[in-house]
Design a protein around this nucleic acid. Sequence first.
DNA 1: GTCCTTCGTTTACATCTGTAATCTTTACTT
DNA 2: AAGTAAAGATTACAGATGTAAACGAAGGAC
Lengths: 139, 139
Amino acid sequence: MTEIENMTKAEWQVMRIIWTLGQATSKEVIDILEKKTSWKTATIKTLIIRLQKKNFLTADESSRPYIYKPLIEETDAIHQSVNNLFDSLCCMKKGNAIGDIIENSAISKGDIDDLISILQDKKKEAPDEVECDCLEANL
Amino acid sequence: MTEIENMTKAEWQVMRIIWTLGQATSKEVIDILEKKTSWKTATIKTLIIRLQKKNFLTADESSRPYIYKPLIEETDAIHQSVNNLFDSLCCMKKGNAIGDIIENSAISKGDIDDLISILQDKKKEAPDEVECDCLEANL
DNA sequence: GTCCTTCGTTTACATCTGTAATCTTTACTT
DNA sequence: AAGTAAAGATTACAGATGTAAACGAAGGAC
């Protein structure tokens, strides 16, 4: 599978647009990003090219302007990114970190219910304590 | 405040050790990291130096070997890191992302209870739906 | 058919990161 | 005091990233 870890924050912005639109021309991406960032046209083009090289995007070149489409699913990208970050955290602190995110994010009632039910389920097999592994020789 | 965003994954590993020990000599850090990574001594020293330059660490140089101490709190670092990542995500997908992490993390019963109660609280003011903001000119 | 405008391609360049060797200074041994 | 070992400082170097200008080709306007 494609390694999403190599997607930078800037590239992520580009992908979000293409994921949301399903597909997009460079102009569409540029128009949107020029509103939300201070990037120049050329910068955004570079990002698109790099995303192609990394196999996150592909261009349909059968007609002009090219139409760019994602080669990875947004869900997968998110999944990999968050798990990647959490892999770096002290496992003892993860619960707290999750609490932090929850407090800082807008979440719908439905999603909240889902989360609660995931947690209730998880509680059945949850340990009483999670030990810090920061000094251990884990792989 | 110090910008934790500039802390790389490799540097993060170093910090975890120093946070956990409270303070440490370079030898202590090196001994531990040589077990959990394949990094050479020199590499780890470079990381320590860079962490000093970035003001994440400070060295007490009053005696040899130097004693390195964190200049930022682990809690703050975690807080900033996770929020930073979540700022990049489509806000509509955050609930799902959180569910993902929960499923993939070991969390203690106590932490689970805390999370459930945070969620129950949050539900009171939660919106029915969260709209995708990927195409918007947000700052 | 020629010119201009878009869009795509190439090139650029400083900084950051991963990864480390080497040099230098201190401290410990004998 | 001299030699060696340990720790800190300097230097290295390729690849990634942020940021963008400049160049070339293709299509539309006249």
